[in-house]
Amino acid sequence: MSVDLATVKRVAHLARIAVSEDDANRMTGELNAILGFVEQLGEVDVTGVEPMTSVTPMAMKKREDIVTDGSKADDIVANAPNSDRNFFLVPKVVE
């Protein structure tokens, strides 16, 4: 499988990365080189093989249902590029 320029632009938009025409052209070549490299996985017979879901077999740890966190809005917004009264501010979203 290989990607064309339109696919690269679509993927860049999905990933929310602005790309210039030059970027997209360069990326098309790079992505095709990588996709060409991973193509060889097609040789492997994976019939009946379970995909890996956890590399270390163990039971998932669970938390007790108690409130142990929160009440630190100042910390939460401390690094925000734009905030007001502990809200994060973003350019207006239109539904």
Partner: peptide
């Protein structure tokens, strides 16, 4: 580059051929 590859291999229609297969190979 890696975000682009990752986004592509997870996108609709490619998941099984790439990500799922890679996780099987990992097994």
């Amino acid at each position: 580059r890696r975000i682009m590859i990752g986004t592509y291999v997870l996108s609709a229609g490619y998941y099984d051929a790439y990500y799922l297969r890679a996780q099987k190979v990992r097994t």
